[in-house]
């Protein structure tokens, strides 16, 4: 079993849904990013999804696009992301998952990327523009491919995404290929706060959750409120919240107010089993 899925499982056994907080690496500031992330963990985040800034983030809405641009203007590159990861992991055993688009990873070198990620203690990787079709070609031509197949050697889970447009068969294939958990994208769309979810969202979450055999399921995209967590909790093992936090930072909220959002979500993860 992977570190991440074991970790989520432990939380679930304690009647808690996992709360993953997405942060853009080096945003809003590069200098105090590590301290800020430690505070996020202390406020109740169970894991951190660390966004690698990219110039052309296709799956992201305006909020995360802006944070990505600011991080790039702050001069953040992959070396920094690994350094952040290492420092955060030294503080806490909570998993760090990297989210990054294909090109910066490819430019860094797939093998180098995996080596450096594993050495800095990163536990998972999400590449939103590498779907099933490109999985083998993107991760090929290195020892990695062999390692990926021999699961006992694999220390970095490649996490795949499902969406409402994924067919049942595809979701099953994604489940087979994904490690750590399956990232269930709640809506047809890009990242961003969603004020209302339709009944269709819930039906799709139920469908996806029931199709998974191997993996835990985390829900992401659009989730911003404790109510969302409570509403979705019957159909998932955890939730991922990004834009709500990034927006709070962009709005210049006081740090304690941003952290309050996280502790609110965390409380919902705790109590959701009782609903």
């Amino acid at each position: 079993m992977s570190y991440i899925s074991e970790y989520i499982d432990q939380l679930n056994k304690k009647n808690r849904k996992a709360l993953s907080i997405f942060l853009t690496a080096g945003f809003p500031e590069k200098n105090n990013f590590i301290d800020f992330t430690k505070n996020v963990l202390d406020a109740g985040a169970d894991m951190i999804e660390l966004g690698i800034p990219f110039s052309d983030p296709l799956a992201d809405g305006p909020v995360i696009q802006t944070s990505s641009k600011i991080a790039l203007d702050n001069g953040v590159n992959l070396k920094d992301v690994f350094a952040f990861s290492e420092a955060i992991i030294a503080y806490s055993n909570k998993p760090i998952i990297l989210m990054g688009y294909a090109n910066p990873i490819r430019k860094y070198g797939i093998k180098n990327f995996f080596n450096d990620a594993i050495n800095s203690g990163v536990k998972g990787l999400i590449v939103p523009d590498v779907p099933l079709e490109e999985y083998d070609s993107f991760f090929s031509n290195s020892e990695l491919q062999k390692n990926l197949k021999q699961k006992h050697k694999l220390k970095l889970d490649v996490i795949l995404l499902t969406t409402p447009t994924s067919s049942d068969e595809r979701i099953q294939e994604i489940d087979t290929k994904s490690d750590g958990f399956v990232y269930c994208v709640s809506v047809v769309g890009t990242t961003g706060i969603k004020n209302n979810f339709s009944i269709r969202t819930q039906n799709n979450l139920r469908r996806t959750y029931s199709l998974l055999k191997k993996n835990k399921m985390m829900i992401g995209f659009g989730i911003s409120k404790p109510e969302d967590v409570i509403n979705f909790s019957p159909y998932c093992d955890g939730v991922i919240v990004g834009s709500r936090i990034i927006k709070s930072l962009l709005d210049g909220d006081k740090p304690e107010d941003t952290l309050k959002i996280i502790s609110g979500l965390s409380a919902a993860c705790e109590s959701s089993y009782t609903y």
């Binding site: 070609s137 969406t163 595809r170 994604i174 769309g189």
Partner: peptide, 16 residues
């Protein structure tokens, strides 16, 4: 693919 080029490097939402 055109040799090594091309492919479908897009978010899952668009695959179907």
């Amino acid at each position: 693919k055109f040799g090594q080029y091309g492919g479908k490097f897009v978010p899952e939402t668009l695959i179907s």
